[in-house]
Design a protein around this nucleic acid. Structure first.
Lengths: 294, 294
DNA sequence: CTCAACCTATCTATAAATCAGATAGAAACT
DNA sequence: AGTTTCTATCTGATTTATAGATAGGTTGAG
């Protein structure tokens, strides 16, 4: 089990080409370097340097082991840099919950910077279907969340708007509603409505969206989009969810008579007051403030 | 710079879930483990274990650093296993020169086993064009060679036949010779002959192959095959070189009147008496003996 | 050829770190 | 309440690491 000081002596002696020079660089006595390397040679049973010349030269075997020694030192540096990062307040794990209705795309550029800035933090991404971000935060499963704005956040939650998302009534292009130029409430009421609903039975926020008496629920808006694509029913979905299908023409947006075609809903970044964020979470939060999601 | 003993104590304490158990497994005093871990905590500034319960449990930060510690220990084990391998007589580098005329395919299965058996040996493969294997061995550039048998090997070379290779007279299917049912020497003499010739000007072994007065040379038989494919001249090439082109029909083998269509030439494995092979080279040599190249 | 400069190995005394054993206090289980 | 098992800490003995001095070898210049 080679001592790190021995490896350091070995490496700097190899780099400087002389034990004395290594002793000067490491600010140790020359005898210390000599002993370190001789001990390393004894312990490994390998002659690392050829001392027949004035200055020692690496043997072929020494060169092989040198590379291995560098690898050990890199592991060591990773260890201490991880420790320093934790020491400086970086969390070791950061869990980000992004509601599926929110476009994750503007975050991606942030994450690339994040990866460089905090290489030691393990990032975890969750994509809960509908308004389950608060429960993930409450249980501590997630540290930071992105979700559509709610009327009331539970106590202990902090939030801040970072943009808006368009919500559109959509159906398949083959659906009877798609044939109409304009639709009003009575049109919509005749057909099955698909409503995103949280896993959490306590959450009643979906109720105010219900127009039609014929309702089906799904947790994920993407699943709803698939049901719609099959020609079944209509739903009010966020642009980020149905963007591709609208472009492909699989789904079409409905024009409403009395309302705006699209209603704008705010996008919030949410976090808990009780679980303090580490350096990485703080940075990410701050960067989210600068975003303008649309 | 964490001491390996500290890391070992950290790791086994984490694995056993107790400092005392770790002390028993490592055959040290319990106080040694306790001290090691406390010192590690002081040096890193990170609390690794939560001691509020009877047995210590890893903190979240401890878990992160534990993985890093494992990585260090793996580097260490790699280091000592490399050292042990060198110690046991394994070379750190093995250079294998396979003349292009020799099919490398039967070697590949060997190399797969070699990679598992000697993971620390850096293998280098050279593919000299024609009869340059001896010079690579003489200069020490290569340790082991595969080549077509020669009449005389220089002094200090050891060799052993390991199979045979068919040598065929070939030309493009569009070449005038390809139109003939059989060819004799006078036919061949009328057309340009391409002859493989060593880089080494001292090497005269190509001369006996020359039939036609119109000769071009090339070092690589593959280059010759390309020239032939373009429709220019004929050459006597080894099966391994032109196998694909014969199958594709780009090149055709010529039938000779008075000679056998194909002449068999031995394949030798060659090495130097003066540069002793390491364990890996010896093993590879021995396995080559068991081969039967054809 | 000789000398000066620079290198490494080795010795020695001292400073430092390590370790085992003993002990005390906390937690868990009976 | 008693027993077991655990960790932290203290202490003295042992081991280890280190600086400094010295001897001997290599290199290159004069």
């Amino acid at each position: 089990m080679p001592h790190p000081d021995q490896l350091n002596a070995f490496i700097t002696a190899a780099e400087t080409g002389s034990f004395s020079a290594a002793s000067r660089r490491l600010k140790k006595a020359q005898s210390a370097i000599s002993n370190a390397i001789i001990n390393l040679e004894i312990e490994t049973g390998v002659e690392l340097f050829d001392r027949s010349k004035r200055s020692p030269v690496l043997t072929e075997e020494g060169e092989t082991l040198l590379r291995s020694a560098y690898s050990i030192m890199e592991s060591h540096h990773d260890f201490i840099s991880r420790a320093m990062a934790l020491n400086a307040g970086e969390e070791s794990h950061l869990c980000l919950a992004i509601e599926q209705n929110v476009s994750a795309q503007p975050l991606m550029e942030l994450l690339i910077v994040f990866e460089e800035k905090y290489p030691h933090i393990e990032l975890e991404l969750l994509d809960p279907g509908t308004s389950d971000v608060p429960s993930l935060l409450r249980s501590g499963r997630a540290d930071l969340g992105l979700m559509m704005e709610q009327e009331h956040y539970p106590k202990g939650f902090l939030f801040r708007g970072i943009g808006h998302s368009r919500k559109l009534p959509v159906c398949s292009r083959h659906h009877p509603l798609a044939k109409l130029d304009q639709v009003d409430h009575s049109d919509l009421r005749r057909y099955r409505q698909l409503v995103p609903r949280s896993l959490d039975l306590e959450d009643k926020s979906h109720e105010e969206q219900i127009l039609s008496p014929k309702v089906w629920y799904a947790e994920s808006p993407f699943v709803i989009a698939e049901v719609l694509s099959a020609g079944l029913g209509w739903a009010s979905l966020h642009e980020a969810v149905v963007k591709e299908q609208l472009e492909q023409g699989t789904l079409v947006a409905l024009k409403r008579t009395y309302q705006q075609d699209a209603s704008l809903q705010g996008v919030d970044v949410v976090w808990s007051r009780h679980k303090p964020l580490g350096k990485g979470g703080q940075w990410l939060l701050n960067e989210c403030f600068k975003l303008n999601v649309s």
